[in-house]
Design a protein around this nucleic acid. Sequence first.
DNA 1: ATATCACCTGAACCTAACTTTAGGTCAAGC
DNA 2: GCTTGACCTAAAGTTAGGTTCAGGTGATAT
Lengths: 147, 147
Amino acid sequence: MYTIGQVSEMFGLPISTLRYYDKEGLFPGLERRGSIRLFGDNELEALRVIECLKQSGLEIRDIKQFFAWVAEGSSTYANRKALFEHRRAAVEEQMRALEKTLAMVEFKCWYYEKAMADGSEDEINKMLPDKLPPDIQKIYDKAHFNL
Amino acid sequence: MYTIGQVSEMFGLPISTLRYYDKEGLFPGLERRGSIRLFGDNELEALRVIECLKQSGLEIRDIKQFFAWVAEGSSTYANRKALFEHRRAAVEEQMRALEKTLAMVEFKCWYYEKAMADGSEDEINKMLPDKLPPDIQKIYDKAHFNL
DNA sequence: ATATCACCTGAACCTAACTTTAGGTCAAGC
DNA sequence: GCTTGACCTAAAGTTAGGTTCAGGTGATAT
């Protein structure tokens, strides 16, 4: 069993955040000795799931709903599975968006490197939008069009 | 030249957001006819860059700084290049985090599918943490440890 | 001429996810 | 016996990124 301070260290989260999560109902079965919270393995795994669901784009209130389903038992397996299937689609979508973003960022890295080498953007502007070097053209197109 | 309503349609952004961006200084050279904003190609490319920088995790005030550099001319190429190099690292980091998130989500999809088939989590718990089917073990480990 | 649009402004409002504050308990070390 | 450190609570405060509101302008359709 761990204290809130230990869990804070382990996960790199402020103590205030852990208390906030608790207040929001994200640790349904959390034990206490007196008023002091005792985090067990269930709570550590819950925290991993919280971080996962948060990064997937879910809001706290919906994460709370998930833990309410967990507390409800095997009758909610279908709900929980559906939740994670939707999260999978959301994360896959996010990855596609990030790839497009990365293409734009890489293009701009090349852009400013060349601008610095040339002393101006003139040479680049002559190449836009479709006479860029082949490898650069690929990331430019990825960043600017829906392929 | 496009009106704010047309740009709103093109980018799927609320008109209020475009006005907010303008107020925050994200379209430094924006033209107007009377009080009416006229968006040109520069502003459309600016919007693409805004969306890119936002998704990369940059805040509005730093995006504003970038456009201030653009307005300042060729003396700021190095600043702008450095900005995008940092954004590249940030996006790559985000992608690694998302992959871990995806692994957790995929594991949980399998988990609840099996729990529904079995009628309980007992069989799964017997397999945890290192006797899962090989393909599932891989995503479980990716989700739970820093590889 | 009048009504309807699409646009404008400044200011107030909103929400999520925390964080900070003020005041309190309790066990251990000096 | 008193101070220090780690914990506690409820309530107020903060921040980013918008959104909504109230009131106004000016071109076009009826």
